[in-house]
């Protein structure tokens, strides 16, 4: 946390998270309305944006300020993929680039797959 450890510092921290996360989503919403891009395309767009930011080294300083505001949207997923890929490539050689992203994000993806599997057994979709 870069803000002072006081009550208003905490509050400001959350305000920044709310505003940055909200702005990213509002930007995606503008894209949807204006360009009729499908959600899948927009997700990929923001994902790649996260990867590029991480590659250029601007994601880390941004996320130090915006924290969950940029990490919870799909940009954060892209950034962790890139972070893992870059770190593993630098430590284990170029082949590591293909493994590092998946290793870094394995928690989230693994749990999402397992939880989806369980949910599909327990619940049934409803007609609306």
């Amino acid at each position: 946390m870069i803000l002072p450890d006081t009550w208003w510092g905490w509050l400001l921290d959350y305000v920044i998270v709310f505003a940055s996360g909200g702005l990213l989503c509002a930007l995606a919403q503008i894209l949807i309305i204006r360009t009729r891009l499908t959600p899948a395309r927009i997700l990929v767009l923001f994902l790649i944006a996260g990867i590029i930011m991480q590659t250029l080294g601007i994601y880390e300083p941004l996320s130090a300020v915006l924290r969950s505001g940029i990490a919870v949207p799909i940009t954060g997923f892209g950034a962790s993929l890139a972070k893992g890929a870059i770190e593993t490539a630098l430590s284990d050689g170029p082949l590591g680039a293909f493994a590092g992203g998946l290793i870094q994000t394995a928690y989230g993806v693994g749990i999402a797959v397992a939880a989806s599997y369980v949910v599909s057994v327990v619940f049934k979709p409803k007609s609306k």
Binding site: I32, P39, P125, K126, S127, K128
Partner: peptide
Amino acid sequence: SHFATAERQYRFPLEYGCQ
């Protein structure tokens, strides 16, 4: 025709959140 079967074939899963 049926909402649930048509959604699945032409669009998205029923529980998928989309506008």
